[in-house]
Computed example of a mutant assay.
Amino acid sequence: MAEKPSTWSQLLVGYGEDAHRLGEGRELWLGGVRIESDRGAIAHSDGDVLLHALSDALLSAFALGDIGSYFPDHDPKWKGLESRVILEVVLQKVRESGYRLSQLSAVVTLDRPKLGPHRTSIQQHLALLTGLPEKRVGLTFKTSEGLAPDHAQCRVVVYLEPLPEKQGEKS
C-alpha cells in the first residue's frame, strides 16, 4: 500500500534578496514601516528591501520569476509603487497555487539608522500584511561593518504549506 505524502513533503521553501543604494532626502521603508532617517532607498518603487525580498522569496518557491517580471522598473506606471501592493499580488499568487505562508525569516543589513528600536513595529506590520502570527516572523538586523554604508540589503527565507482544503486533495 502506498504511503500518503507527509506534510513535510508538501512544504515549499523560497529564498529572495534585494538591495538598494541609499540617497539623501529619500524615505526609508522596511517591512511596510516608514523608518525615520535622513536617507532612503533609491528605487523605482518605495524601495522597501524587506518586502521586495519577501515577495521574491514567495515567487521563487513556485518558480514564478521575480518581482521585476510583474512590476518592471522601466514601466512608468509602477513609479512610486508601494511595496505592500507588490506583496499583496504575490500572496494572491501563492493562494491561487494552493499554498499559504507558514513562516518567514529575514536578515536586514543596514548601517544606520539602528533598526533594533523598530523591530516590534516591523514584526507586527509584517504579521498584519502576511496573516502570520508574530512568532512566525523572524527578523535579524545586521550592519555591514562599514563595508557598504550607503546601501540597504535584505535576505528572506520562507516556508509555505498547502492550504488546509488543498491538503485533503493531495492525500
Rank of each mutant, 00 (worst) to 15 (best):
A2C: 01
E3G: 04
P5S: 00
T7Y: 09
W8E: 15
W8H: 15
S9C: 00
S9F: 00
L11Q: 10
G14N: 10
G14M: 04
G14Q: 05
Y15K: 10
E17F: 11
E17Y: 09
E17Q: 12
D18T: 04
A19I: 11
A19K: 11
L22F: 06
G25A: 00
E27D: 14
W29E: 09
W29K: 08
G31L: 02
G31M: 01
G32H: 11
G32Q: 13
V33Y: 05
R34V: 05
I35K: 00
E36M: 06
R39E: 02
G40K: 00
G40D: 01
A43N: 03
S45L: 01
S45F: 02
D46C: 06
D48H: 11
D48M: 14
V49A: 08
V49I: 01
L50E: 09
L50K: 06
L51G: 05
L51K: 09
L51T: 07
H52K: 04
H52N: 03
L54N: 02
L54D: 03
S55A: 08
S55L: 08
L64T: 04
D66S: 10
I67K: 03
I67H: 02
I67Q: 00
G68L: 14
S69E: 11
Y70S: 02
P72G: 04
D73M: 08
L81R: 08
L81H: 10
S83C: 06
R84V: 15
R84H: 14
I86S: 08
L87W: 09
L87M: 08
V89G: 06
L91V: 08
L91D: 10
L91Q: 15
K93A: 04
V94D: 02
E96P: 07
R100V: 13
L101T: 07
L101V: 10
S102C: 09
Q103L: 14
Q103I: 12
L104Y: 09
S105Y: 12
V107N: 09
V107Q: 13
V108A: 00
V108Y: 00
V108S: 01
V108E: 00
L110N: 04
R112D: 04
P113Q: 03
L115E: 05
G116I: 09
P117S: 00
P117V: 01
H118F: 15
H118P: 05
S121W: 10
H125M: 14
L126K: 11
L126S: 08
A127G: 07
A127E: 06
T130W: 02
T130P: 04
L132Q: 09
K135R: 13
K135A: 11
G138R: 09
K142D: 09
K142M: 07
T143P: 03
S144L: 07
E145H: 05
L147A: 13
L147F: 11
A148D: 02
D150A: 01
Q153E: 01
Y159H: 15
Y159S: 15
L160C: 00
L160H: 01
E161A: 10
L163Y: 07
K166D: 12
G168Q: 11
K170M: 13
S171M: 08
S171V: 12
